[in-house]
Every structure is written in structure tokens, then in C-alpha cells.
Design a protein around this nucleic acid. Structure first.
Lengths: 347, 347
DNA sequence: ATGAAAGCGCTAACAT
DNA sequence: ATGTTAGCGCTTTCAT
């Protein structure tokens, strides 16, 4: 019952025992030499073992090793939507941090299904040392179960009931900055395209926008707020509603950049000029923002740093170092000015 | 030295042995009942075991199981750039196929470093049953080593020297279709923005474009061909060169959609109108294409199907079923007409 | 400096 | 129908 592939038979790989036999030592000695760093062995034995390992092309079986040591030096990153450029940046940051400490990073698409959920639970039970969860749509209850069973993980860009460790961005501050940008340009009748209800980042961003408006003595009434999907779903309808109810709107802030793209598109479809008729500001940065015409002004958030810090938090937990929840504020949110925002029309 | 997290101590999980003891049976019996389907056990024992497992919240240790069985029911998908929407679609197709057969899919970012390369080799050695490699930048030599060591894998959208199994698209056909579209509109002076040199898909696409031009009796001279990155790098310079050398160009075909985005942007920056002055056609489809203004006409390729078939190929290999290399032609490439292409200017 | 032996948690022949 | 036993490949006391 050997595993037959079209490339021929799979020679079973050399084991530590093979190496030990060839080098005429015990497996323990071989293990020590191949694995450990500064143990005392005679130069002679060491040479023999190393040579045997090489000539047999020995690769340790990580499964066996992990079973024994309970350590995999591998962590997972759970994302809901690979297509979203936001995650790519976070992953880049996390990857760097993981690699620096000799950890490998595995990506998992959590999107669909109870079945995958179960797999992940198993995985994190013994095939991963820890998990970064960047999926705001996963229910609190699941998180809870994970924590109750003593698993090591960190939430990114979300919190959960209880005391689950998390690392988040200053979504409120970033969103306030978007509003401030419109304010600085002279806009007074502003609308806000919010993300999906019940998603924490979306709510934080709305909160930040709302507060900044209020501080400026400007209202942001329900007629000028609409929910839509982070993928741009529902934006067209929302824009239509805004302008049928409040044609005086001159500036629109959004909960994410794809929403901004969709808004620009819909506004143009309605015959409005950007930015001379209406200004639009996005949230998060992506190279795509330059291709949309006109280039979309956006709030750049420190997503790489978010990924990095999340990984650091996780690795600290794994190492038994106490961690604190964090709000990343360091590379501060900043406006990337392109051509979708300008002074309001004066009509 | 217990693993101390900020959430408290990690209770070590219940093992099969715990369950067996509680149910007063041997571990083999417990294993059979919990794992297998149709083995014969008395209703009574079965009930006792199942109940014990439940009350102890028993979860099998997959590491131990895999060590024993040499099977992980997990496969990997190697991608060079998570940001590229092309992979998202392939992954969706692969995921579906994997799930249907009870396999889990792990994603790996292969981009950087020899170190990661080594990790992947180890991983595929015992933590994965197989690997889908969708990374055209990985060198043939590495592929070779993988194959020489008897690993199970399939290449996607690329081939390699030797007889490494692969699944590819009809890149030539798709690209020919792009040219045909321009031809049908009446374009006669066409330029081609090719992908990076040495990348097979890029070369196939160029080949297809070139052939279709030749068949139509039209030249596609070096002055109207330029290489650029799949991420749009070098496009601006290429467009500039095209129009300084051959201002008569009316249509541009591209090796991928991001290149098309960048081309549209540069053309507009040069004061050319799209499509009235110049038509641009992309390759591959993404929702982003609708946000770019004007919406970009593109050749939609069956990327999901590609992912699906690659996974099927891999799972067949794992099951010991002989596989054949494939060129996916079934959902045929098709033009998605938007607003970046039209009849050529008549000047 | 090196080896013997135990065992991580599981499955599967081989009994009975 | 159920139990006994061996062992996957590795690390790690504990001896010597």
C-alpha cells in the first residue's frame, strides 16, 4: 500500500535511527548532535554523525518531534477574506516578526463553514503553537471556547467579551482624521458610509467620525449615515439615498477604501464631479487607490505594524511572557492626499 | 515550565487513554469506536465510550494520529503574493474541492527567503499530504528537488523541466482573444504590454497575442512590445516609449489586469482619452476592474476552475490515482466588455 | 562523552 | 466483540 505517485515510488525518508546506525552511535547521541547546539561530544563522533546525516539526506520528522516536545514553532493567521488588501499588509508585518524568532506562519481562510472551524480548533490544539485571529465575523462564543480550552491566541482589530488578548488600531482616531480633513477643506455638510453593523472596527470608525463632527458643532444625522459591506456592497443605494434626501452634501467619509471606490463610481454615475461637486475620503491604503480615477484620498493606517505587534504579542504569550492588550498608535494615521477631495462647491 | 498565558493554566487535554479508562475498555476499542465508522461493538460499550469522550471533552491528537498513519488530510497552497486577486480566485476553487473530500487547506506565502523554502520542504515532508504550487518565480531546481524526494505536488499556471505534474490555463488562447477583440473593433496598430521576462504565463500570453497578430497579417514589432511587472511596475515608462516611437497606436493589450490599470492611468496622464484615443484590454478579471474609470475591458479566465482542477489533480495523486497534466479550456476565456475599449480613432 | 530506556498519543496487526 | 502488543520518529531523563 505504498503511496504511488506518477513520479515513482516514495522512498521512505531516512530516520534518526538510520543516521545513528550508520554513524555507530545511539539515537540519543545523534539527536543531541543534530538538534542541540552546545553539547559536549568528541569531535570525532560529531563528524561521523553529521556526515551520516548528510549522506542519508536526513530530515527530522517534525511531527514526531512536535509530538514529543509539544512545540511546533508554527503559528497560524486566520483571515476572513484573502482578497482584501488590508490583510496582505498585516500578514507582511506578522510574517517578518515570526521569521525573526524562527517561527513559521501558516495562513488560513476562515470564511466558510462549521467544518473548517472544527479543523482550526484541532489544528491549534496541537499543530500550531498559537493563532492570530483577524476575523471580526467570528462569533464571540467560538473565541470563548478557544480561550476556555486554554489555547494561545490573539485577536486583531477586534475585541471579544471576556479578557481575550487583542491588538487593535486607533480606528476612532483615524476616522476622526478623515472628518478633520474634510473639515479643513471647508466641508460642512458631510455624510458617512459606515461598514457593516455589529463589526467592531466599523463601529469604532463611525464613532470617531461622529465624535469629530460633534466636536466641530456639526450634526451627522441618520439621514447622512448608511451601512454597507466592506466590499462595497450597498454603496450605490446608500449614495442614492443620501442625495435624494440631502442634496447639499459636499463631502463623504467612508469606513474603508473599497467603500470609497464604490462611492466615487456611483457619484460619477450620477453625474457628480469629484472633487468639485463632492469629496470622498477612504480609510486604509492600497496601491489600487492610485488606479481609480480620480486617485482616492485616504487615511493610511499602520497595518503592517498592527500585524507585527499582534505577532509579537502572540510570541510573548507562547514564551510565557505576560502580555498587555494594545492600541497601536505609533505610526499615526495620516492622510494620503490624492484627487478625490477638495474644497466644497459653493453653490 | 508549564505554558503560562494570561488566561491561566493550560489544562492538558484528555487523551484516548483517559477515555478508555473511564469507559473501562482498552484504548484500541476506544479508538475504533471514536474513529472508525462501521465496526462491530456492543451498543453498551459504544455508548460508554462515546459518553466518556464527551464528558472528558476528548479531542484526538492529530499529531500522534498522523505520525502513526502517515496521513494528515491537509494540503498546502503556495502563493507568491497574497495581494494578487488572481490567487484569491484560485484558492476559492481549490478550497471547495478540498473540502468536498474532507481535506483542509493551508495557505503559505512563499515570497521571501531560503529559510521559508526550507520550512516548506519540511512541512510537505510530514505535515502535509501534498502541495499546490502556484508560484512561477520558484526556480526549477527547487521543484526538482521536491520531486526527486518523492513529494506529492502539482504546479499551477506553470510548468517545470522534467515531468512535474501541472495544470495550466489556455493563456495563449485567452491572449489571442484579447487581440481578436481589438481587431474586431477595427484596430490595426496594436501594442502589447507583456509581463516579466522568464515567467511562463507571461510568455504564453505574449505568444498568443503575437500569433493572433501574425495570423491577421499584422506586425507586432519590438517597438510595440514592452515587459513590465505584474504589479504594474514599469508600465508608465513603457507607455511613454510606445507613444514616442509609434504615436499611431490605437489599441493596447496587456498581460494582466493590473498592467491594464496602470496603462489606463498613464494614458490619461498623457492626455489621451480612453477609449476614444486609445483602447486598453486587460487579462484576468477582478471586481476592481469596475472601479477604475473607465471600467476596464478584460479577458476573464477560468481561475476558479484552475484552482479546482489543481486540487483534484493533487488529491488524485494522494489517492494513488494516475493523473494527467491538464490545460484548462472549459469555461472558455471570454471578453468582459467595459468602457476601456472601442473603435479606433480615425485620424 | 555516550547509551539505555521510557514515552509523547495514537492506530492496527494479531490474538482471543 | 474486545484486548494485547508493537511501534510511528523523536527527545530526554537517568545511568555509566
Amino acid at each position: 500500500m505504498r503511496n504511488q505517485t506518477n513520479s515513482g515510488l516514495k522512498r521512505s525518508a531516512a530516520t534518526l535511527r538510520d543516521v545513528a546506525e550508520m554513524a555507530q552511535v545511539s539515537t540519543s547521541t545523534a539527536s543531541r548532535i543534530l538538534h542541540g547546539g552546545a553539547i559536549r561530544v568528541s569531535d570525532d563522533t560529531r563528524a561521523r554523525v553529521v556526515q551520516a546525516a548528510e549522506s542519508l539526506r536526513y530530515r527530522p520528522n517534525t511531527l514526531a518531534r512536535s509530538l514529543r516536545t509539544k512545540v511546533t514553532r508554527t503559528v497560524g493567521f486566520l483571515i476572513p477574506d484573502i482578497q482584501n488588501p488590508v490583510y496582505a499588509q498585516m500578514i507582511a508585518g506578522a510574517e517578518e516578526a515570526a521569521q525573526a524568532q524562527g517561527y513559521a506562519l501558516l495562513l488560513m481562510n476562515s470564511s466558510s463553514g462549521e467544518r473548517r472551524r472544527a479543523f482550526i480548533e484541532l489544528l491549534v490544539e496541537d499543530r500550531l503553537d498559537g493563532l492570530i485571529i483577524a476575523d471580526a465575523t467570528i462569533d464571540d462564543q467560538w473565541i470563548h471556547r478557544l480561550q476556555a480550552s486554554g489555547r494561545t491566541f490573539v485577536l486583531v482589530n477586534r475585541r471579544a467579551r471576556g479578557n481575550a488578548p487583542y491588538v487593535v488600531l486607533d480606528d476612532q482616531g483615524g476616522s476622526a482624521l478623515a472628518i478633520q480633513h474634510l473639515l479643513d477643506l471647508g466641508h460642512r455638510t458631510i455624510a458617512y458610509l459606515a461598514g457593516p453593523p455589529g463589526v467592531e472596527t466599523a463601529e469604532q470608525r463611525f464613532e470617531g467620525a461622529l465624535k469629530r463632527c460633534q466636536e466641530a458643532g456639526l450634526p451627522l444625522p441618520p439621514t447622512r449615515v448608511a451601512s454597507c459591506g466592506f466590499n462595497g456592497e450597498g454603496v450605490a443605494a446608500a449614495v442614492d439615498r443620501f442625495f435624494s434626501e440631502t442634496p447639499e452634501i459636499t463631502g463623504i467619509a467612508t469606513a474603508n477604501i473599497v467603500i470609497a471606490f464604490a462611492a466615487v463610481q456611483r457619484l460619477e454615475a450620477r453625474g457628480l464631479r469629484i472633487p468639485s461637486d463632492v469629496s470622498v475620503v477612504g480609510f486604509h491604503e492600497t496601491p489600487m487607490a492610485t488606479y481609480v480615477s480620480p486617485g482616492v484620498t485616504t487615511v493610511e493606517m499602520p497595518l503592517m505594524e498592527l500585524g507585527r505587534r499582534a505577532m509579537l504579542n502572540l510570541l510573548d504569550q507562547i514564551a510565557g511572557i505576560p502580555v498587555r492588550n494594545e492600541v497601536i498608535t505609533d505610526p499615526k494615521p495620516r492622510i494620503v492626499q490624492r484627487h478625490s477631495t477638495g474644497t466644497p462647491r459653493t453653490s
